[in-house]
């Protein structure tokens, strides 16, 4: 299956993908959001389990951006 060379993405898609990618960055770089002890989960203080949770969420957000861009590219043809 030969794909033509992708060109610049439609602005709407690029903006949506950008938002999906910036959310995990902000969620982790705004430290006061999560630098606290409670509520605890399985003995983990909030500060620790929040960051572990974002391992999975960041992966999900990035994958969504990937799917979004992939669909936009296929839709062009």
């Amino acid at each position: 299956m030969r794909e033509p060379s992708p060109r610049r993405l439609p602005t709407g898609v690029a903006a949506a993908a950008g938002v999906l990618l910036i959310i995990p960055v902000l969620a982790l770089l705004i430290v006061p959001l999560y630098a606290k002890k409670g509520p605890q989960l399985w003995g983990f203080p909030f500060f620790y389990w929040y960051q572990f949770l974002w391992v999975f969420l960041a992966s999900g957000f990035t994958y969504s951006a990937y799917v979004l861009i992939g669909r936009a590219r296929r839709g062009e043809r």
Binding site: P24, F47, Q51
Partner: peptide, 21 residues
Amino acid sequence: GAVSGFFAVPYTIVVYPLIFI
């Protein structure tokens, strides 16, 4: 503790959206 060590976790999460872009 956390400031000198655990920052490695957000660091290695934040890097992937950057790589993606």
